[in-house]
Simulated scan of single mutants.
Amino acid sequence: MNSAALSAAKTQLRSLMKQRLKGLSNDSILQQSKAVFDSLRSFRPYVDANRVGIYLAMPGGELQTDLIVRHALQSGKQVFVPYLHKSGLAPGEGPARLMDMVSLAGIDDYESLRPDKWGIPSIDAATVDQRQRSLGELEGDAAADATLDLILLPGVAFDEDPDTGVIRRLGHGKGFYDYFLHRYALKCAGRGDVSDGRAAVLLYALGLREQFLAPTSAGQQESTVPVGPHDQPLDGLFLGDGQVKLSANSGHTEQSQR
């Protein structure tokens, strides 16, 4: 699939998912978010993780992460959340804005975050220089970086590749996570901190059950997640119906709950 066809397929699927999720009630989202939290909090990679990167959710239309953030902080984990900043790159050399993951100081810090224009709790730019950063850069300036053990990602749609057993993710189309993970992998490679050619960080997505594209009763896929060379494969996916789907390449021993 060429780049134009890939982009068109992604746009079409995002539109389909937007329509599917539009009528979903807040009660259903909260119930599903609680189910994911219940599955995650006893999941060994999460239990063992000391530094966890996690998205902060929009008020509606996606799996909520408030319970997870609070539990992680109360469990003594270091929690890192997304922060967008100017890239420091020259025009034409890359995107104007980059995503990093920066640390929260604790519950009070988390509760002090103010919503952005999408309603997502966001880091105040004035506090960033006081925080650890997973890529150790800000607007082109280097700083000490902090490695992550686990990243919990959002997404628009997910499926399982029938040939490889890999869980695939469709993002929101801005490329922030894919480019962040690419840069993170390069930094890990520079330190020798890689596993099977990938950055030594576990990638699990969180999704509503309506976001998973499952085979129909006739055995046909209702739709598929189109992926390109820059789309990152996942180690697994937590769904709001309690399912935990693991990619065939995850190397994790717990069985997927289907």
Rank of each mutant, 00 (worst) to 15 (best):
D129N: 09
Q221R: 14
A142R: 13
G197E: 06
H230L: 12
G228C: 09
A146M: 13
Y110A: 01
S112P: 04
A126F: 06
A200N: 14
P215N: 04
V128G: 00
L203I: 13
Q130G: 07
D100M: 09
L98A: 08
K187A: 14
L170T: 02
I151P: 00
G228R: 09
D178W: 06
A144L: 03
P229L: 12
A200E: 08
T147M: 04
A143N: 05
F176R: 04
E160R: 15
D159C: 08
D108K: 15
S112I: 08
L202T: 07
P229S: 15
A205E: 02
E160M: 15
L135I: 12
C188A: 15
A144T: 04
A218E: 14
Y204F: 15
R169Y: 07
L104H: 01
D109S: 02
A200P: 02
V227G: 03
V166P: 00
I120S: 00
A143V: 00
V102P: 02
P154G: 10
S195P: 03
Q220S: 10
L152A: 05
G136P: 01
A125Q: 13
M99D: 14
E139Q: 14
A157Y: 05
E210V: 09
P162A: 11
D116E: 09
Q132N: 13
F176K: 03
G171M: 10
T127G: 05
L150G: 00
S195C: 14
L181N: 00
I167L: 15
G228D: 12
G140M: 12
G228A: 10
A96V: 06
I123H: 03
A96S: 10
P154E: 08
K187W: 02
A200Q: 13
Y204R: 02
F212S: 03
L152Y: 08
V227L: 09
Y177M: 06
A125M: 08
Y177G: 04
A126C: 07
H230D: 14
G136L: 00
K187L: 10
R191Y: 07
L170H: 00
D149S: 06
E222W: 00
A126H: 11
S195I: 14
R183I: 04
A105G: 03
L113T: 07
S217G: 15
L113M: 13
G119E: 05
E139A: 15
Y179I: 09
P215A: 03
L186W: 05
G165E: 05
W118Q: 13
S103D: 02
D231E: 11
L203S: 06
P115S: 08
T224A: 14
E137R: 13
G165F: 05
Y110T: 03
L213N: 01
Q132D: 15
D193V: 11
Y184F: 15
R97Y: 13
F180P: 01
Y204L: 15
A218Y: 02
S122K: 10
D141G: 09
T216I: 04
E137Y: 08
I123C: 04
F158V: 09
L213D: 01
G165T: 05
P162V: 11
T216C: 09
D109P: 02
S134P: 12
S103W: 00
R169D: 07
G155Q: 07
L150I: 03
R133W: 00
T216E: 14
E111T: 06
Q232K: 12
G219H: 10
Y184T: 05
R114P: 01
G136Q: 02
G165K: 03
